[in-house]
Design a binder for these strands. Structure first.
Lengths: 197, 197
DNA sequence: GTCTATAATCTGATAGAC
DNA sequence: GTCTATCAGATTATAGAC
C-alpha cells in the first residue's frame, strides 16, 4: 500500500530534520561570507548539493529561513544564559554579562540578525520572540536578586552590554578592545544602580 | 575654440555639484525606504529623473556612492559636535552626549552606515575616515578637560552612547525609551571615571 | 523530495551615438 | 552629460514530471 508504516514515517522525519539542519548550518556560513542581507538561496543550495528550488521543501520562503535562524540563535543565547546561573547573584550577574557579550561578538552576523534591524523585509515570528522575552526575563530576575527593581536599570544594562558588543563587532571584529571592558562596565553599572554600597 | 571660458567652467561645475547633491539626497531617501543594502541604482535614477547609466557620470561605482554618503554623514556629525561646544566642560560633555545620541537615532539608516558594518563590500575611504577620527579627537579633548585621561574611558563612553542609540534604533525607532536615559548614563559614566567627587 | 524548466524581475556596469 | 542598447549575470519563486 502507499501508506507508509510508522517506521517509514520516522525515518523520513529524521532525514528531513537532518537536511534542514544541514541547510541552516550552510545558511549561517553563507551569511558570514556574504553578509546577512547578501545571503543567496542559489549559493546556499549549491553548498548543500541541491538545486535552489528544492530548498522550498524545507523553508517556504527566504523570510522563513531568516526566521528559523533568528529563533535558533535566540534559543541558543537563552541556554547560554541559563548555563551562566550561580547561587551568588553578584557572581551570576557578572557571568551573565560576560556570556552575553561573548555570545554577541563571537559571530557578528548573528549579532546583526538578533539585535539590529538590518534585513529589510524581515520581522521575527512568535518562536524567536518567545525566546527573546525569556532572555530578558532572566536578566530582570538577576537584577531583582541584586535588589535592583528600577526598570530603567534593565534598559541601561542592555544598552551598555549591547554597546560593547556593537563597538567590538564593528570596529575590531575578533579583538578584545571593548569586550575587555565588560568587568569595568559591570562595576560602573552596579555603582549607579545597586542599593547601599 | 573648444576651450570653454572660465565662466563656462564655473557654470558647469555648479550644475554638476547641484545634480550630485540631488542624487545624494535621493540616495538617502531610497536607503531609508528599502534598507541600506537594498539601495538600488535603478530606483535611485528613476527618482532623480535619469537613466540608471547616467549616474556613473557622478559616481563611478556603487561603492563610491556609499563612500560619499559616509563622508557627508560623518562631516555633519562633526559639525553638530562642534556646535555643542561650551566653555564649561561639564556642560559641553552633556551637550555632546545628547547631540551624538540624537544624531544617531534621528536616522537609523545613517546610524547603520556609520557605526555598523552592514553593507557587504563597503569600506569607507580616506575622506570619511578623517572626519571619523576628528569626531573621536573632539570627544577625547572634552574628556581631558574633565580630567579624564584614561583611554579606556573613551571606549566605554562610545559603547554606552552607541548602545543607547542602537537599542533605540532597533527596538523602538522614533521613541524615547533609551534616549531618555542619556543623562543617567552620563552621570553613571562620570561617577566611574571622573576624578575626585 | 528532488529534479528540469521557466517565469518575471532585478542587479551593477560598459560602449558608443549624439 | 545624457541617452539607447546591451551585457552578463543575479534574484526569489512556481509548475509539473518522476
Amino acid at each position: 500500500m502507499s501508506t507508509p508504516t510508522p517506521g517509514h514515517r520516522d525515518r523520513r522525519r529524521v532525514h528531513h530534520e537532518a537536511t534542514r539542519r544541514e541547510i541552516l548550518d550552510a545558511a549561517w556560513a553563507n551569511a558570514r561570507e556574504n553578509g546577512l542581507a547578501g545571503l543567496s538561496l542559489r549559493a546556499l543550495a549549491r553548498t548543500v548539493g541541491m538545486e535552489p528550488q528544492s530548498l522550498y521543501t524545507y523553508f517556504h520562503s527566504k523570510n522563513a529561513l531568516y526566521d528559523a535562524l533568528f529563533a535558533e540563535a535566540y534559543a541558543e543565547l537563552l541556554s547560554r544564559q541559563r548555563a551562566a546561573a550561580h547561587p551568588d547573584p553578584q557572581v551570576a550577574f557578572t557571568r551573565i554579562a560576560h556570556a552575553f557579550v561573548h555570545y554577541c561578538t563571537e559571530d557578528p552576523v548573528r549579532y546583526l540578525l538578533l539585535f539590529q534591524r538590518t534585513v529589510p523585509g524581515f520581522t521575527p515570528g512568535p518562536d524567536g520572540m518567545r525566546s527573546a522575552v525569556e532572555v530578558l526575563d532572566l536578566v530582570r530576575d538577576i537584577l531583582a536578586r541584586l535588589g535592583i527593581g528600577d526598570p530603567e536599570a534593565l534598559d541601561v544594562l542592555t544598552a551598555v552590554l549591547g554597546g560593547i558588543a556593537a563597538q567590538q563587532t564593528a570596529n575590531e571584529p575578533g579583538g578584545r578592545r571593548w569586550t575587555g571592558l565588560t568587568d569595568r562596565a559591570v562595576t560602573m553599572f552596579l555603582r549607579e544602580f545597586a542599593p547601599d554600597r
